[in-house]
Amino acid sequence: MENMVAESFKYMILGMGIVFVFLYVMVLVLQFQAKMIGKYFPEKPADKGGETAGVDKKKVAAAIAAIQHHKNLRK
């Protein structure tokens, strides 16, 4: 090996270059993928529960009222 330092310097340029190109392309692909998946496979909205909870509250209130009414009648 004539000049190890020059040689290793070239390896460094090549190595860091490849590592960055690899990761950069990966980042681009991942960002693209996130966009595509977000568009075509949207997560089902998880906060659907809010509305049903509202309905439930009304029903629960009605049920309590009905039971209370029934009890009152029996007295």
Binding site: Y11, M12, G15, M16, F20, L23
Partner: peptide, 18 residues
Amino acid sequence: PKTALLGGAAQFGIFGTL
């Protein structure tokens, strides 16, 4: 994903030491 580039920068430890 951008933070993945940091995982690349740290590899300078390998090539710098080389």
